[in-house]
C-alpha cells in the first residue's frame, strides 16, 4: 500500500490503494487511468526493451535472407523478419501511450542506455541457425508472451495478443527447418546439431536470472504485468522443448538433463550466468555490430525522414493557401 522506498514521487496513498485494488480485481489499466509513477516507469522500461529486442532481433535472421537456400525459405524468412519489425512497431506504439515519444526510445537504444534481449547478441553462423532461432528463441518468446497477453496494462496486453497470433508460424517454421536438416544429408544434420548446441543455453538465459536475482521482478509480479516467475517460465519452456528435440533426433547440449517423473519436469544443468552478464553488459559476440547496424540505419535514414516531413509541411501550406 505504501509507496516503495525507492520511488521518487510520494504517491497519494488513497489513489495508490485504489490502483492496487483495481489490479487485485483483475482490471486492466488504460493510458488515461491514474497510475503510480513507478508503475509507469517500469512499463516504459519493460515495453521499450521488448520493442528494442524485436527490432534488433531482425538482424541475426536478416543475415541469412540473401542466402536462403530455396524460394519458399526465402519468402518465409523475409515474412518472419517483417513480422518482427511489426511486433517492434506494435510495442513501441503501446509504449507511446505512456507519454513518451518513439524518437526518445530509439535514442535510448542507440546510445546504449536501454537494454534489449541478450540473445540477439549472438552470431548466426549457418543456415541451420535460422531453424534453431525459430524453434528455440521464438519458442522461448512465445512462452513469455503468452503470459504477457494477460498483463495489467491494456496496450501491452493487446499488443501481445496480436503478436502471439503471428508468432506461432515463426516457431513452426524454425522447427520445420531443423526437422528437414536432421533427416537430410550428414552435412545438414551436423549443421543442425551444431546450431542447436550454440543456441540452447542462450535461449534458457532469455528468461532472465532467477527472480531473487532480478531487480524488477517483484514490482512486475505485484502489478500483474508478469504473472509467472522467470524460473517457472524457463522450466515450462524446457518441458515443452525436450520432447520436440527428441522427435527430430537432435540432442540438447546438457549432460545433466534428466526427467523427474514425480514433478513431471525435465531438470537441467547449471546456467553460466557469467556469460549472461558479459553479454548483457556489452561484451557479447555481436553487441557492437548489432547496435552499429541500428545506428547506421538511423543516421543514414535521417535525410529520408526529414524529406517526408518537409514534403508534408509543404503540402499542408499549399492546401491552406489554396483554400
Amino acid at each position: 500500500m505504501e509507496a516503495s522506498s525507492t520511488a521518487q514521487v510520494a504517491e497519494d496513498p488513497a489513489r495508490l490503494a485504489e490502483f492496487e485494488a483495481r489490479l487485485s480485481r483483475g482490471e486492466t489499466i488504460e493510458p488515461k487511468d491514474w497510475m503510480p509513477d513507478r508503475y509507469r516507469k517500469q512499463l516504459v522500461r519493460m515495453m521499450s526493451q521488448h520493442a528494442h529486442s524485436e527490432v534488433v532481433g531482425m538482424l541475426p535472421e536478416g543475415n541469412w535472407i540473401t542466402r536462403a537456400p530455396n524460394l519458399r525459405r526465402k519468402l518465409a524468412l523475409l515474412a518472419k523478419v517483417q513480422d518482427e519489425a511489426g511486433h517492434g512497431l506494435y510495442i513501441y506504439c503501446g509504449t507511446e501511450t505512456l507519454g513518451v515519444d518513439r524518437a526518445e526510445l530509439i535514442d535510448q537504444l542507440l546510445s546504449g542506455k536501454a537494454k534489449y534481449s541478450s540473445i540477439f547478441n549472438y552470431p548466426t553462423l549457418t543456415w541451420a541457425d535460422m531453424g534453431a532461432i525459430g524453434w528455440l528463441v521464438d519458442g522461448a518468446a512465445i512462452v513469455n508472451q503468452t503470459m504477457l497477453a494477460h498483463a495489467s496494462y491494456g496496450p501491452y496486453a493487446r499488443a501481445m495478443v496480436r503478436i502471439c497470433k503471428e508468432e506461432n508460424f515463426h516457431k513452426r517454421q524454425g522447427y520445420e527447418i531443423l526437422a528437414t536438416l536432421s533427416r537430410g544429408t550428414p552435412a545438414q544434420k551436423a549443421m543442425a546439431q551444431d546450431a542447436v548446441n550454440r543456441w540452447w543455453w542462450p535461449s534458457l538465459m532469455m528468461f532472465g536470472p532467477s527472480d531473487k536475482d532480478s531487480p524488477n521482478s517483484a514490482d512486475l509480479l505485484r502489478w500483474r504485468v508478469k504473472q509467472k516467475s522467470n524460473d517457472d517460465l524457463r522450466q515450462r519452456f524446457v518441458n515443452l522443448t525436450v520432447p520436440q528435440a527428441q522427435a527430430i533426433d537432435l540432442t540438447l547440449p546438457d549432460p545433466d538433463l534428466k526427467y523427474n517423473a514425480e514433478t513431471g519436469d525435465w531438470e537441467f544443468g547449471a546456467i553460466d550466468w557469467a556469460e549472461f552478464y558479459q553479454v548483457i553488459g556489452g561484451n557479447g559476440p555481436c553487441n557492437r555490430e548489432r547496435l552499429g547496424a541500428r545506428r547506421k540505419a538511423h543516421e543514414e535514414g535521417q535525410w529520408v525522414r526529414d524529406a517526408a516531413a518537409a514534403y508534408a509541411e509543404k503540402q499542408a501550406r499549399r492546401k491552406k493557401s489554396a483554400a
Binding site: V55, M58, L59, G62, I65, T66, L71, K74, L75, L78, A79, V81, Q82, A85, G86, G88, L89, Y92, A293, K296, A297, E300, G301, Q302, V304, R305
Partner: peptide, 25 residues
C-alpha cells in the same frame, strides 16, 4: 530484401519487405 533491418524508419522497413515478398512471389 537486402534492406530488411536497415530501412530509414521502421514502417518503411516493413513496406520494402512487402515489395520484396511480392516480387519474389
Amino acid at each position: 530484401s537486402e534492406w530488411c533491418g536497415h530501412g530509414p524508419i521502421l514502417e518503411e522497413d516493413i513496406a520494402m519487405t512487402n515489395l520484396a515478398l511480392d516480387l519474389i512471389g
